[in-house]
Amino acid sequence: MTDHHEDDPLRRLGLEPADLDGHTIEELGDYLDAGRTPRIPAIEESPGCQLALDALERLRGLGTALMDEEAASAPPVDERWVARILSGIAMDAQAGRRIPFASDDPDVDLAITEGAVRGLVRAAEEAVPGVLVGRCRLDGDVTEPGAPVRVAIDVSVRLGDPLRRVADRLRAEVEDRLRRHTDLRVAAIDVAITDVREGA
């Protein structure tokens, strides 16, 4: 049986329309092209859209570099890792579970969404040249304060970059961001290098 949704680019990315508050990846791309003007409040007021815009913008910056590489007769780019990264961006846009902060006031409930945390982890790629985060998972009961959580990250790296050093730098950056923005008890940060690419 054919899934009548399979031609919907949003669903191909594993994303439901509600995750982007009714907007599409294409709309967000057009919005970036226009320099985010005129301002569209419905996009700017959607955290899912903001997470997706951040990641698309970083990916777009890389796309420019890749095009430059192609123009310089570098080998053709394997697009599979781009698809994996887009899939990860789609996942980030979902708010997911609510991760609590400790509170000494029973009437005050403070938390951060799992989607925001995944966005934090993904943004760590900014600090490690050549790294692109594909997927990020938080394994464990993040809703239970003090419960051990493992962070699993799939990444793409440049051919020739020292793999262990790159993984260590990314792990340290992610650990720092998680410590700064969550109360999670991080038991491990597993970095899996799933793609090695030529060029940018």
Partner: peptide, 9 residues
Amino acid sequence: SITLTVAYV
């Protein structure tokens, strides 16, 4: 009660 959630960093 007050319920506040960070949805985006």
